[in-house]
């Protein structure tokens, strides 16, 4: 088994699915000759040709809108949106069409479309190059949302997303694209959408997170392991999401901290808390704490580390729930 990073895991999943199924195609800005600005589609055009790895005109609604037509016709497009801040141009196409074509056509047409985009900050990137749009899409009936956090998960989840018959937003953790290397099977494998991973077992507090934050939450949990035995749940997908895993864990620990980069108000953490309240309120021994981005624009490089939950802020959050 080779040790690979997340970008390579994306590449490997794409190459294997394209090899296996002629209907899988890749499209987007700079994905062809250049192999993507992050190199996620490196060499794919050489292997599969310009009709299956397509450099498109620079138009996000154009990429997603034509991909919807292609998918309804019978292809399985994987569209890359170069940076997550530019996905909003395609919001209408996703909300008004991709998400509801199966429903509107009484199952005659469906949209097996994957929209990949790098999300999240922490790389000193330019404005609008590192947004966290996951909640908008988790709130959009008809769309699934995947937020992988490791190379192994990325490959298995992307293969599942490509094989899924419905539209999937695949939000890649840009900040740790190359930060983690791990052994990933060369053979194909899938990880089901909607199943969380217990990234660390523990008994004192449940830490719920997804995407790039999983790495920092794990680090925080390790750091304080002498004082607090934390369980870390990496959700992997936020629609659907594995409420059972969260509830089981909270019933055991009685405490929860939720960590995400996206702004706090109406962020996905609110949904997790509501779910805990519905199903495990009486097991709680402390109010739930959210460690999140603020309701501000994501600041530029110099201030971004104040905004994105740091190990320190996560540890403070844990201490707060443990103080009850």
């Amino acid at each position: 088994m080779a040790k690979i990073n997340i970008v390579e895991a994306v590449n490997s999943a794409l190459a294997q699915e394209m090899e296996k199924d002629n209907d899988v195609i890749v499209m987007g800005e700079d994905v062809g000759v250049n192999g993507g600005v992050f190199r996620a589609t490196d060499n794919l055009q050489k292997k599969f040709g310009p009709n299956r790895v397509i450099d498109t005109p620079l138009s996000e609604e154009g990429i997603v809108g034509t991909a919807i037509g292609m998918a309804a016709y019978g292809l399985k497009p994987v569209a890359e949106i170069q940076f997550s801040g530019f996905l909003f141009a395609a919001f209408d196409q996703l909300f008004s069409h991709a998400a509801r074509i199966r429903w509107r056509s009484s199952n005659r047409y469906h949209v097996p479309l994957v929209v990949r985009t790098p999300g999240g900050g922490g790389v000193r990137a330019f404005e609008l190059h590192c947004e966290c749009p996951e909640s908008y899409f988790a709130h959009m009936p008809g769309i699934k949302v995947v937020c992988p956090s490791t190379p192994y998960d990325t490959k298995g989840l992307l293969i599942s997303a490509i094989r899924d018959p419905d539209p999937v937003i695949f939000l890649e953790p840009m900040r740790i694209y190359r930060a983690i290397k791990e052994e990933v099977p060369e053979k194909e494998y899938t990880i089901p959408l909607g199943k969380a991973k217990i990234a660390r077992e523990g008994n004192d507090v449940t830490l719920v997170t997804y995407g790039a934050m999983a790495k920092y939450v794990l680090q925080a949990a390790e750091k304080i392991q002498d004082k607090v035995d934390a369980e870390v749940i990496d959700l992997r997908t936020i629609y659907p999401f594995d409420s059972e895993a969260i509830i089981n864990s909270v019933k055991k620990t009685g405490r929860a901290v939720i960590v995400h980069e996206a702004p706090k108000t109406s962020g996905f953490g609110a949904e997790i808390i509501a779910t805990i309240n519905e199903k495990a309120l009486l097991s709680l021994e402390a109010p739930i704490v959210r460690v999140t981005g603020y309701d501000t624009v994501l600041p530029m490089a110099k201030l971004e580390n104040y905004h994105i939950p740091s190990e320190e802020r996560i540890i403070k959050g844990i201490s707060k729930v443990m103080s009850f």
Binding site: I25, N51, R52, E61, G62, G65, T66, A67, I68, G69, M70, A71, A72, Y73, G74, L75, D92, Q93, S96, H97, I101, R104, S105, Y109
Partner: peptide, 30 residues
Amino acid sequence: FPISIPVGTQTLHAVGAAWAAKLKKDKNVS
């Protein structure tokens, strides 16, 4: 296809489907 309620957005679906037909070497028109 189901009628489009948002104005103009269906253009892209027609072009996408036509493109898919071309890539699949079907002789279908949108």
